[in-house]
């Protein structure tokens, strides 16, 4: 069970309190009616699924209830950065690609 740093609680909390929310920074188009079928399908169904650093959403559902974003290395399972929803993806340091 991982410990996940929650930016709203300001502490690490056990994974059992969280739900993973999939890839982060997939913004809903402001005007979906202006989006082509292909682009809409891309928005709905296509995700990057990287090996390495991934920006993903977590919700502290059985804690403070908030969604937030993390950068997690999918190889080492390490949390490299954590930031609030709406904030830009932080640049990754040299340790980012470590496995």
């Amino acid at each position: 069970m991982l410990l996940i740093p929650c930016p709203y609680c300001g502490m690490e909390r056990p994974e059992l309190e969280f739900r993973n929310g999939g890839e982060a920074h997939i913004s809903r188009p402001l005007d979906p009616s202006a989006v082509s079928d292909a682009d809409w399908a891309e928005y709905l169904y296509f995700r990057s699924n990287p090996k390495g650093v991934m920006a993903e959403r977590w919700r502290h559902v059985s804690g403070c209830g908030r969604f937030f974003n993390v950068l997690r290395d999918t190889v080492s399972d390490k949390f490299l950065a954590v930031y609030r929803a709406g904030e830009p993806r932080p640049p990754i340091g040299a340790e980012g690609s470590s496995a």
Partner: peptide, 9 residues
């Protein structure tokens, strides 16, 4: 959860 997701993000 679906509602909170849209509301928060």
């Amino acid at each position: 959860a679906h509602m909170e997701d849209y509301l928060q993000t």
